[in-house]
């Protein structure tokens, strides 16, 4: 199964402060362990919400755009990982070893196309999604070059 690990923003990340060298080094070591164990699928840092926007959808009206920062939001995201694990327990064990201090990190299992089998008896939806993913992966590789 895959899980998404959501790292929360704090005052520092929202102020656009970058992690110090010690934090980066510790996190780098942890990331290396994840890669060596074949757990790491992806990981990214997200810029402060002041550089972002929110789009709210109405009923029969055009979507409304709000510029960041989102000061009313209690829980903003500052980064994430995607991990390949055998169970939630394994994901929790990995996360417990992460070099964090005084913060809270969320683990959420990801929907796999097989989860939709009951509402996709012909498998049409699953096939369409597989195609989409294969094409996106190619683009992803190109974007990183």
């Amino acid at each position: 199964m895959r899980v998404m690990v959501l790292v929360k923003a704090d005052e520092n990340s929202e102020a656009g402060a970058l992690p110090d060298e010690k934090t980066l080094t510790e996190m780098g070591k942890f990331n290396e362990e994840l890669v060596r164990a074949g757990v790491m699928l992806a990981g990214e840092g997200i810029q402060a919400s002041s550089k972002g926007a929110r789009v709210r959808f109405g009923k029969g009206t055009k979507p409304t755009v709000f510029d960041g920062p989102f000061t009313e939001a209690k829980e903003l995201i500052a980064g994430f990982w995607l991990w390949q694990v055998k169970s939630m327990e394994e994901a929790i064990e990995w996360l417990k070893r992460a070099p964090f201090q005084d913060t809270e990190v969320e683990i959420r299992p990801v929907f796999e196309s097989t989860d939709f089998a009951p509402s996709d008896p012909t498998g049409e939806l699953m096939a369409a999604e597989e195609r989409l993913r294969a094409q996106s992966e190619q683009l992803n590789k190109a974007a990183r070059r």
């Binding site: 929790i92 201090q101 809270e104 969320e106």
Partner: peptide, 10 residues
């Protein structure tokens, strides 16, 4: 279906 891990005092 998820979990949160907090790190009070590490």
């Amino acid at each position: 279906m998820g979990a949160r891990v907090s790190f009070p005092g590490g």
